[in-house]
C-alpha cells in the first residue's frame, strides 16, 4: 500500500511537471513539503479512491501523509 501511495503521489506531481519525491514519511505535509495545491489534492483523492475504494477527504481535510494511511486503514 505504501509503495502504491508513493507512486500515486508521484504521478500527480509528474502530471503537473513538479519535482518527484524519492521517499515518503508520515510526517510529510501534503501542501508544504510535497508541494500539492487544491487541484493536486482533488486529483490525489480520485486516484487513491480508484485504487483503494476510499475517499480520503470524505470525512474532512487531511494534511499529512500519515493521515492518508489513517484513512486507508
Amino acid at each position: 500500500m505504501r509503495d502504491t501511495v508513493h507512486q500515486i503521489i508521484n504521478t500527480v506531481l509528474a502530471n503537473r511537471g513538479k519535482k518527484l519525491i524519492d521517499s515518503l514519511n508520515d510526517s510529510m505535509r501534503l501542501r508544504d513539503d510535497i508541494g500539492f495545491d487544491s487541484l493536486d489534492l482533488a486529483e490525489l483523492t480520485v486516484r487513491i479512491e480508484a485504487q483503494f475504494n476510499v475517499d480520503i477527504f470524505e470525512k474532512g481535510i487531511i494534511s499529512t501523509v500519515g493521515e492518508i494511511f489513517e484513512r486507508l486503514k
Binding site: N15, S38, E43
Partner: peptide
C-alpha cells in the same frame, strides 16, 4: 469530488502515441 466539489475528467480516443501526462503538459 470531496475536495473541490467537481473535477474535470476527459475520455479520450487516441492513436496510441500519447500518455496522460503528454496531454496534460
Amino acid at each position: 469530488n470531496s475536495v473541490l466539489g467537481n473535477i474535470v475528467v476527459a475520455d479520450v480516443v487516441q492513436d496510441g502515441s500519447l500518455t496522460e501526462s503528454d496531454i496534460r503538459l
